[in-house]
Each structure stands twice: as C-alpha cells, then as structure tokens.
Nucleic acid binder design. Structure first.
Lengths: 117, 117
DNA sequence: AAAAGTGTGTAGTAGGTATGACACATGAAC
DNA sequence: GTTCATGTGTCATACCTACTACACACTTTT
C-alpha cells in the first residue's frame, strides 16, 4: 500500500536529488510545520495532517492538491460545501458513477467541463 | 436560518400530531441516544451528532439521509470514499457544476442514472 | 575541528467531538 | 392524588485531532 507518508517521502526525496533544499527541515519550515512532526508524518507514525497542511505540502512539492488530500483520507472542504448545497442530487450522481469505468467517468467530466448548459 | 436542530424538532413535532410516540424520549430511545442529548440537539445547544446518529434519526423520522446529513454539515462517508477513489475527476466534476442551474444538474444526474456507458 | 545542517525520539498539550448519567419540575393519565 | 411520562438543566468524560518544543546523535560543509 502506498500510504500518505511514504508517498510524501518518495516525492520529497525525488525532488531532493535535483535541489538540496528539499530536506525535511527546510520543507517543514516552508510549509509551516515542525520538522519532527513532518518526519513522523513521512514515516506514517502519525496520521496525515490537517487539510490546510496537506494543501501547503501539495504546493511545496508540486503535487495535485485533491489527489494528495485523497491519499490523506480527506476531501477538500470546498467540494464538501458544494455537495451540501445539493445533497440528494450529488449523492445520486456520485453513487451512480461508482462502477463506471474510468473512461465513462472522464466523459461525464469532460461533458460538464465543456459546459453544455 | 433553518438549523439542523430546529428542523429536526419541527419534523418530529409534525409526526407527533398523528402518533404520540414521537416524543423526545421515545425517539431518543429508538435511535439510541440519551433523551437529554437529543433535546439539546433539537435546541441547537450542541452541534449535530455523528453521521451514524444522523442516519438513525433520518430513518426514524422518514427523512432523506443525505439531506439530513447536509443540514448537519456532513457528507456521507460512502460518498467521500467514492470521491477519494478518483479525486481529480470528481473534483473537476463537482466544481464544474458549481454554478450550474438546478435543471442542468438534474440533467447530468439523470444521464448518469440512465447509465449510458 | 568547529559550525551548520540533518533526521528523529520523547514528552506534552489545547481544543474539539460525541456523547452519558442524574436530577428536577411540570403536565397528563388512571 | 398518586403514578407515569415529558422536556430539560447541570456535570462529567473518553477519545480524537493536530500539533509544538526540546534534545540528541550523526553527517556534511567550511
């Protein structure tokens, strides 16, 4: 299983090869966390941090925010708020796509993106 | 503002007119909560209860689970899990529907329900 | 070889979440 | 008029969540 912590560690170390400033300590500083805490996060010794912290980590490491949040077991709070505005419709929409093959999911996404309403 | 608590109270009292067993105490018992706690919930003296408790309340009062959860500021955990399986796609899909008129939202829902993949 | 940087172990904590237990006063039922 | 049911006030709590602070040993840089 690719846990949140180990994924984070691999990504950071990959960046570190090209840029020495991607140490635990310096990334922690940029992101506004204690180095010891980030270290524990990367070793999965503690649970993934807050949504805000994950967002800053995603930015610092050039990762997709929503994807990293998902790895951390969370969903962006702005999405939650949108769902809560139309709970029944979104519930049916999301559950309706449960078994959809990725291609079908992407088609719906594209359809909506191209805003045909 | 129609808060979670006051909505719950109104719904319960409406049911109580026809069926005297919809008292705070008896509903609390059916739902597995302390009467004093349910009372506080209905008066918004405390935050809405857990997802599980809201689910049982929805069932006991004949309400839509997802709608009641939304009123309580939550989103069903099974939806969260589905989103976490395709975080980027679902994020774009949901954000893409942010400003969609309800009719358009319903159209997409129906389209998916009729499973055209 | 001193200074600076590195990762991590240990300990502690402030605030939130989700309740339970008991007691009491009022009102309805028998 | 006692019994029973009702809603609610007060108090307590166990368990998370999301961290910080300090200290230590090792490595790299100068």
């Amino acid at each position: 299983m690719n846990s949140f912590g180990s994924y984070l560690r691999h990504r950071r170390e990959a960046l570190r090869v090209k840029d020495r400033s991607y140490s635990v300590r310096q990334v922690a500083k940029r992101v506004g966390l204690e180095p010891a805490y980030l270290s524990k996060i990367e070793r999965d010794e503690v649970a993934p941090p807050s949504e805000e912290a994950i967002g800053r980590l995603a930015e610092a490491l050039g990762e997709d925010r929503d994807a990293l949040l998902a790895l951390g077991g969370k969903v962006s709070s702005d999405l939650l708020e949108l769902i809560r505005r139309h709970p029944v419709a979104f519930a049916e929409l999301i559950r309706g796509l449960r078994d959809a093959p990725p291609a079908a999911l992407l088609r719906v996404v594209r359809e909506v993106r191209d805003g045909d309403w």
